[in-house]
């Protein structure tokens, strides 16, 4: 389980996170939702210790963040970070050299799942295929938790559908996923849990099936209520 406990963060004088608390379980897909600039990416960066937090605590499986933690968790940013002149194959090799948790079999499976050609250069890929290559490089690692920043942002419908299919496939297995988005429509039925963020705090967190059962509301209904008030 990833536990984010009352974390705060300031950029200069701007208080971006004002005490954010939520949990994300293994075997579940937790979705951080909020309009842009609400601090979603900052939270993911904080979990990866890429940005220091001012106060609060982050625990992974009950333990504080330490170098070994990052053998169990990976962060897939919203843009690909390997060099654009590399081919997909070269970027896979790069990841393999760099990360001990690289899983060749899963990488090959992801390659065919996304219908990507290993000899193609990253710089020559369409936006949709760049997003898929980016996901491949992260998902191929044998880690327990995967953080994904806006994997659906700015790509065509068919690529979005193909990426959404990953979430129902065995490629995710029973790993824990945190995904950020400002567009819930595509993935409403794929996620377990929603964490609604606004103005640096968690407005509400809930299981999607529970909110449907208990209140007869869709995720979008809840968002409308929370963001209007």
């Amino acid at each position: 389980m990833i536990e984010v406990k009352d974390i705060t963060k300031k950029f200069g004088r701007k208080q971006v996170l004002k005490g954010v608390t939520f949990t994300a379980e293994k075997g579940e897909i937790t979705c951080l939702i909020g309009i842009n600039g609400v601090g979603k990416t900052t939270i993911l960066n904080a979990i990866m210790a890429l940005t220091p937090i001012k106060t609060g605590e982050i625990l992974i499986d009950g333990e504080k963040l330490k170098p070994a933690t990052f053998n169990h968790i990976t962060f897939i940013p919203d843009a690909i970070t390997v060099l654009p002149q590399m081919t997909i194959e070269e970027s896979m090799q790069f990841m393999k050299d760099y990360y001990g948790t690289w899983n060749d079999d899963r990488a090959q499976e992801l390659l065919s799942f996304f219908k990507l050609k290993p000899e193609e250069k990253i710089s020559s890929l369409s936006k949709g295929n760049t997003a898929k290559a980016n996901l491949l490089l992260g998902l191929a690692l044998d880690v327990d938790y995967i953080l994904m920043d806006e994997p659906f942002s700015g790509i065509d419908m068919f690529s979005r559908e193909q990426i959404a299919d990953v979430f129902t496939s065995h490629l995710i297995e029973d790993r824990g996923v945190i995904i950020t988005t400002h567009e819930i429509g595509d993935i409403e039925h794929l996620i377990d849990k929603v964490v609604l963020l606004d103005d640096g705090v968690v407005k509400k967190q809930f299981y999607t099936e529970e909110i449907r059962a208990a209140e007869g509301k869709s995720v979008i209904d809840v968002m409308r209520e929370e963001y209007k008030s």
Binding site: I29, T168, S169, H170, L190, D192
Partner: peptide
């Protein structure tokens, strides 16, 4: 997993 993939819903939901 098969059903989850086919009807595009969360595998935990199918499990339930």
């Amino acid at each position: 997993r098969e059903l989850a993939g086919e009807i595009k819903i969360n595998p935990n939901t199918v499990q339930r």
